Computed example of a mutant assay.
Amino acid sequence: MESFSSTTAAQVQIINAGGMVLADSQGAPAVEKLTFDDIQRARKGELGHWQGNLPDTGEPAMSVAYPLKSGDQVVGAVCFITSLTVIHEVVRNVYKGTSSAGSGIGLSICDEIAKKSCRFRQDLKHHQNK
């Protein structure tokens, strides 16, 4: 977990088949079974995802949960959770840039959004292949 947390700002959780957090890159203690829809889907062998606001802070965030398998059996899930605050700021800048300075600036900011939003997916794929 330490090596992963040094390569991404995303929170990473390893969850067992019963829904309990076994490890958390931010050290959050496991106190109860996680019943979020994205994690439930991953525990059923499907890719789960969620986007909304974090209950503790209200911060916009998204998560992706992926099943962990041993052979054909799902034994748990890995969940990646990342803030969308920076992406929301970039979107606001796109809006401001396109309305005040023209579409050239807006296009370059859109390119920046694409880079930032793809980083999370690249981190997921990189660690999936390890």
Rank of each mutant, 00 (worst) to 15 (best):
T98N: 05
S103F: 11
G106N: 02
S99G: 00
C110H: 11
G102D: 09
S108C: 13
C110N: 13
V90W: 05
I87F: 08
E112C: 03
I105H: 09
T98Y: 03
A114T: 15
A114W: 14
T85P: 01
H88A: 14
V91R: 08
C110I: 14
D111V: 04
G97Q: 01
K96I: 08
I109Y: 07
T85C: 03
V86G: 03
V94H: 06
E89R: 07
G106M: 02
I109T: 02
V91D: 05
A101V: 03
G106S: 02
L107A: 09
I105T: 13
V86M: 06
L107K: 11
S99R: 02
G106C: 06
C110G: 14
I113C: 13
T85R: 12
L107R: 12
I113V: 15
I105A: 12
T85F: 07
E112P: 00
A114M: 15
V90A: 07
D111S: 12
T98P: 02
S108P: 06
S108M: 15
R92Y: 11
I105K: 10
Y95Q: 10
V90H: 05
N93W: 05
G104M: 11
S108G: 12
N93E: 10
S103M: 11
G97I: 00
I113Y: 09
E112L: 09
N93D: 10
E89L: 07
G106H: 01
A114D: 15
S108L: 15
K96Q: 06
V94K: 05
S103H: 11
G106I: 00
C110E: 13
S99H: 01
G97N: 04
S99D: 00
D111C: 04
A101S: 11
H88K: 13
D111G: 10
T98S: 09
D111L: 06
E89G: 03
K115W: 13
R92P: 00
G97W: 03
V94D: 04
K115G: 10
S108F: 14
A114K: 15
S108D: 15
R92T: 12
T98G: 06
L107G: 06
C110K: 14
I109C: 00
I87R: 03
S108A: 15
K115H: 13
I109R: 07
D111M: 06
T85N: 08
E112K: 06
